[in-house]
């Protein structure tokens, strides 16, 4: 299973602008357009053999210059998308960013559910993963244990629930993967019934 990282392909979502061992921050190519919370995304490595995988853990839109706060632009007669037509410069002074928790990498053709030795390279492209990649990477949901210990803007339970929902929808396999994943979580969290319930209630199919 090899994912292509051809520049300019439509799967590009954004670019890494801050990076460290446990995760990275990416700036979206398009204002307001960012991958879903909990989605699996990937970044190419310095060589073609390596790629990095992570879960979208937070998103935000604000001023490009952090010292400039957004102000109200609309009123009864001007709202939502029309505001952007009336203020064309907003597309250039605002930006959307998303942070990603790194959960694994690909070394050659095999996936590793562990932190890579090096941080994701700065300024590299962040891509959406196609269904086949998601199926291959998520086949063994052992990485869920790492997400349980996630430290970031969200509570780990919220992030896990978002990821489970996203993967279930993306895989569209009659909830087979979701059942497997939740069973694994139940084992991992057997001493923490309250947290487990919170996750299970959040992901229960309608």
């Amino acid at each position: 299973m090899v994912v292509s990282f051809r520049p300019g392909t439509s799967s590009r979502l954004g670019e890494v602008i801050e990076t460290n061992t446990t995760g990275f921050l990416a700036e979206s190519d398009q204002l307001h357009q960012l991958p879903d919370l909990g989605a699996l995304v990937c970044v190419g490595g310095l060589d073609a053999e390596r790629a990095y995988y992570g879960i979208v853990a937070h998103g935000a839109t604000g001023g490009l210059d952090t010292s400039r706060k957004a102000v109200r632009r609309g009123d009864d007669h001007l709202s939502d998308a029309a505001i952007y037509d009336r203020h064309p410069e907003l597309e250039l002074v605002l930006r959307t960013v998303f942070s990603v928790a790194v959960i694994g990498y690909r070394d050659g053709i095999s996936y590793r559910h562990a932190l890579p030795a090096l941080p994701v390279p700065l300024h590299y492209s962040v891509h959406a993963c196609d269904r086949a990649t998601v199926a291959a990477f998520c086949a063994n949901p052992r990485y869920l244990a790492a997400l349980l210990n996630y430290h970031g803007e969200l509570m780990p339970e919220q992030l896990l629930a978002a990821h489970l929902r996203w993967a279930d929808t993306t895989l569209d396999d009659g909830h087979a993967w979701l059942m497997d994943a939740t069973r694994r979580l139940a084992r991992l969290m057997k001493r923490d019934y309250d947290r487990l319930t919170m996750i299970l209630e959040a992901v229960a199919p309608d």
């Binding site: 064309p88 410069e89 250039l92």
Partner: peptide
């Protein structure tokens, strides 16, 4: 340098 165009085909370059 800033160019802003308003109306039917809004555009901004900064």
């Amino acid at each position: 340098k800033v160019y802003l165009r308003y109306g039917d085909d809004p555009l901004a370059t900064l």
